[in-house]
Design a protein around this nucleic acid. Structure first.
Lengths: 340, 340
DNA sequence: TTGTAGGCGTTATCAC
DNA sequence: GTGATAACGCCTACAA
């Protein structure tokens, strides 16, 4: 018995009722429409035949696929797996499955997987790939199904979104460095076309200004992506241009890792010569040499919250689009020390 | 136009043909059944209306969902994202999308997501969760759709599978340690109910025997899972019981990381006091202190090969189930040194 | 409370 | 080469 084309009709037949009745008995919402006795008979028949409803047929009929499309920049970035876990776990509890697609930051790829998902009639989208101005976002908004943003948010607040409070996080970092006596702090800013990159950079400037510290251009480098390579490149740029900085604030942990490499090459010691801070407290970052001082928050919760926001929409509870900011925490480790 | 219920019928109407003809014109395999002129008219109409076929309806009719179920122990383990990428990228190129589910090594969870996928009529499965004896595997075999194993293989060779050559890898590691003068080598073995755990442990014993070295029980600890915590626990056990070992071979990198922690706590230095080797060369493991000597192989390729094996089956090319072993490479880093 | 009938959008099998 | 028809498995008005 390798194949199992046991359908609703089979169950109905065994239970001695009409398929429609069997359908009603099997679905919780409509079960009360049927007498308890027949309901039990149907349930028993279904159990005996090991009936599993055909989700495809159901989707076609109900026009709901119980499926959610999730766009991730790159699953290899350790920041995302926990988010995806939080998201998928929560969705699963509500009967949805997640279709996960990687975009590699490439618009073409992003659009292709988006269309794939649309063709499969996903009931909603969770996008972790949002840029501040993003054509895909506009399309998604017009796709007729709910869209939630995760990690990165859009320029306006038109989408329900979940992100970390970047401003608060950066402030914690700058205050920490200042408290250690640093006054000459460089910045490796992330891409300015995504909210995390822009918000952190702005927060950095504003926190520095509040501390009465200048940020000369020579101490700022802009990474084109949140990658180790770009962190490396930017750190070299800063080291080459500037002679005075005693600390580097990287736009995220990946950039900080690249910064580590540049320091190594320049035979500079962290934190003895230069302190480094990151952002995200991504998995395994605490095992680097030295362990990185950074901003922590629950990645899993970001995903779980995103799922909740989407589930709200999916259930028709269309509230105002709101942005949830999860709380950042400063984690002080070995990469920061007193200004030399 | 927020909603887009543009269906085949609409296209047919605009092109002035019957829906069946439109269908034929739109599908590559059947396009040659229709005159070139009408085919072009249909294509033009489809383009104008931005027609996207409803994959759900198609699935119902063709009984193929163009969907593949993928079971992963835990996406948070950095070993798996690259595999999933290799798998999903390859599948995507052939029109399939991957449904990814985490099991957390829990049978109940595994079964639930498996059933979810079955209900969605996936066309095949890729399982990275196989234990040597595994009830889920038996069920999957009887599910009537192709099954491929990834990373872990089954006790017999009844499934097409992709894995690294564990024996060769372990031999490289042991030879490396022996060449450094180590004779007293401990082993943190992975779970013995999965192929990777068992094969590596057996290979370790056999490589040691070939080198004429004894492996007393006090120098072997068995981890219940491939986790940092278990590596930590096992390493403490070995350190507590034995006084003579100068090197530890961990069943994988996660266990090696746990071993690092135990060494730190015992104020032992690696590699000065004790050398450590891992297995997998998982992402970021090269950034630890010290960088880990381990066995590398292309995780992405493992996923890609698994996809190829599955695609073969999906296309009806049912060859003998074969096991593909990808080639391991020894990566010598800072965690191994001459025996003290 | 249960049965009837129709259709979700597509493709396969007939005819023409 | 094209059109008509039916069916994939399920759900839901509506009727009984």
């Amino acid at each position: 018995m390798p194949d199992s084309p046991v359908t609703l009709k089979d169950v109905a037949l065994l239970a001695g009722v009409h398929p429609a009745t069997a359908s009603r008995a099997l679905n919780l919402e409509t079960r009360l429409l049927v007498s308890e006795e027949t309901a039990n008979r149907v349930l028993a028949a279904a159990a005996e035949l090991e009936y599993h409803p055909n989700a495809v047929a159901r989707s076609l009929r109900t026009r709901r696929s119980n499926t959610v499309g999730v766009l991730i920049p790159d699953l290899n970035n350790p920041l995302f797996p926990p988010m995806v876990r939080g998201l998928a776990d929560r969705l699963e509890n509500h009967g949805y499955v997640a279709l996960i697609g990687n975009t590699d930051g490439d618009d073409g790829r992003g659009r292709r997987v988006f269309e794939q998902m649309r063709a499969r009639h996903v009931d909603g989208y969770v996008l972790a790939t949002a840029r501040l101005r993003d054509a895909l976002l506009d399309d998604a908004a017009h796709s007729g199904v709910p869209v939630v943003l995760m990690n990165r948010i859009a320029a306006d607040d038109s989408f329900p979104s979940v992100s970390v409070d970047n401003e608060a996080g950066i402030r914690l970092l700058v205050d920490h460095l200042v408290a250690l006596g640093h006054r000459d702090i460089a910045c490796i800013a992330g891409p300015q076309d995504v909210s995390t990159g822009l918000a952190r950079y702005r927060a950095f400037r504003s926190a520095m200004a509040d501390a009465g510290l200048a940020v000369p251009d020579s101490r700022v480098a802009f990474a084109r992506s949140f990658s180790i390579e770009e962190g490396h490149r930017c750190a070299r740029e800063i080291l080459a241009a500037d002679s005075g900085c005693t600390a580097v604030a990287a736009g995220n942990d990946m950039l900080a890792v690249g910064c580590y490499q540049a320091l190594d090459e320049a035979r500079l010691s962290c934190p003895a010569d230069i302190s480094v801070v990151g952002f995200n407290d991504m998995p395994f970052i605490d095992m680097l040499r030295p362990p990185l001082t950074t901003i922590a928050f629950s990645h899993y919760q970001v995903g779980a919250h995103a799922a909740d926001l989407l589930l709200d929409r999916l259930n028709g509870h269309a509230s105002q689009p709101k942005v949830i900011y999860v709380l950042p925490t400063l984690v002080i480790r070995g990469s920061t020390g007193r200004s030399s």
